[in-house]
Nucleic acid binder design. Structure first.
Length: 439
RNA sequence: GUGAGUGUAGCUCAGUUGGUUAGAGCAUCUGGUUGUGGUCCAGAGGGUCGUGGGUUCAAAUCCCAUCACUCACCCCA
């Protein structure tokens, strides 16, 4: 690529038509499952005041401390491209007084998100994420429902079999604070055995030390006091209840005490879906309960639970498992014509075909029948329509079966109905705008 | 942010110890065939070898820098 040509910026990519088949399909599954469960779609702005994220996700989190696209607008306001979905949804919940709606409020979103991170497979600076949030009620059954819904989506997309559900409880913030103190006390005097990053983390986020991959740190982590011994009784009971619901629904899970999540707002339940083979490196989604967040952001004390997953990662997994999605983009028919009069007839005919839900394309430029049929072949259509001088004169058209190579001539006004029959009602791309309601 | 690997046509890749005008397959376009596609045949277009600099009589090839991609760490979607 020469110097004077443009390339997309580092870490972002075009979604080309082929990949859109995946995106379209996945979004369809999400919308379908969300609607079935009573969720309603919400779209929050692509950027928020920086404080929305800084306050909710936590100043010391990786996201806020080094991965945000933050910029000043012309009036010097600090704005940030959204790095995750929950903070914006919560801001919107508070701003629009959704606590006055019947509780709980069930919301879902499908949107691009932005993080300044070193690109890798399944890790981009702009990525599509979808999420579900249940706000306004606290009950293990709701956590179970969020997990069930996520699980259902994975199932529909054919990747459920390659994922494991990793589950943990991190308790209420107070008990976590106590445990963090216990951890700091435990590590006091052992600093020499810790790696550099852990030394930095010890002060602000000691929970992370348990997760470190360095050998020496791991040895220490194994000796460290168990978080479960310090978690409040209420959270432990809550967790047990959740487990019993998951058992009832026959959803498999792995209890993983190392799951603590990188966002500060979680309480009690946290979970991630991991790739069975590559583990945490390839988490396709995760979530948990965030009972304190709404109040912390200036709303009333409101419990909530949510889940979010990355669409590009799901696609990567689907491709690895050789899962394909049906293409809705394939054309049904190609209309070839010869001569100016035929072209007129074709323009009208193509419109009629499309009204019937037949995906039709014509070579309305010049070209011999041969060239046009070649195009029809390239576009891989099952049928072609041929209209030449003779057909115009006789008010007919030829329908050609591209696979068999057979043809039939029939009156041009009978063509749409005939094609509908050949293609099959179920395969049509019907669009019915006649659904508008007027009051 | 740290470490490693890779950059040659739209795609997949050859290109020897540095040596004339940088190649192949696929794809694209044209013609053989101005009323019938797929196969076949003939031909064409498309590259300042990622970019910039250096070494050399001579660089796709060696050196340095830079950018991008990939992988690992980190973290997560």
């Amino acid at each position: 690529m020469a110097e004077n040509t443009f390339r997309s910026p580092k870490g972002v990519h075009d979604i080309l038509p082929k990949d859109h088949e995946y995106h379209t399909y996945i979004k369809k599954v999400i919308r379908h499952r969300a609607r079935q469960a009573g969720f309603r779609r919400i779209t929050t702005p692509m950027f928020e005041n920086t404080r929305v994220f800084a306050q909710s996700i936590g100043e010391t989190s990786d996201i806020v401390s080094k991965e945000m696209y933050t910029f000043a607008d012309k009036k010097g306001r600090s704005l940030t491209l959204k790095p995750e979905g929950t903070a914006g949804v919560v801001r919107s919940f508070i701003q629009h007084g959704m606590n006055k709606l019947p509780q709980p409020v069930l919301l879902y979103y499908i949107e691009p998100h932005f993080r300044y991170d070193r690109p890798q497979k399944g890790r981009y600076r702009q990525f599509w994420q979808f999420g579900f949030e249940i706000i306004g009620e606290s009950d293990p059954a709701l956590d179970a429902q969020i997990i069930q819904l996520s699980h259902k989506v994975n199932e529909d997309l054919g990747i459920d079999g390659i994922l494991t559900l990793q589950l943990n409880t991190i308790g209420l913030p107070e008990s976590r604070t106590e445990y963090m103190q216990v951890l700091q006390d435990f590590y006091a005097g052992k600093e020499r055995s810790l790696c550099e990053t852990c030394l930095n983390r010890l002060d602000k986020n000691p929970l992370r030390l348990l997760d470190c991959k360095e050998e020496d740190c791991q040895i220490l982590a194994k000796l460290a006091p168990d978080m479960r011994d310090y978690i409040d009784k209420e959270s432990l009971a809550y967790h047990e209840e959740l487990l019993s619901y998951l058992d009832e629904m026959e959803i498999e899970y792995t209890e993983n005490k190392k799951i603590i999540r990188g966002l500060d707002y979680y309480t009690k339940t946290v979970f991630e879906f991991w790739d069975r083979e590559t583990g945490a490196q390839n988490a396709i989604g995760g979530g948990g309960r965030y009972d304190g967040l709404i109040e912390q952001m200036g709303g009333q004390n409101t419990p909530a639970v949510g889940y979010a997953a990355g669409i590009e990662r799901i696609i990567a997994n689907m491709k690895r498992e050789k899962i394909r999605v049906p293409s809705k983009d394939d054309l049904h028919v190609f209309v070839a014509q010869l001569g100016k009069e035929a072209k007129k007839k074709c323009l009208v005919l193509i419109d009629e075909l499309r009204e019937e839900g037949i995906k039709a394309m014509g070579a309305l430029g010049k070209g011999s029948i041969g060239v046009q049929l070649k195009m029809a072949d390239k576009f891989n259509v099952p049928y072609a329509i041929l209209i030449g001088l003779t057909e115009v004169r006789e008010k007919t058209a030829i329908i050609r079966d591209m696979q068999k190579g057979t043809q039939e001539t029939l009156p041009i006004n009978k063509v749409p109905a005939r094609l509908v029959k050949m293609i099959g009602e179920n395969n049509l791309d019907k669009y019915s705008p006649g659904e508008l309601l007027y009051s």
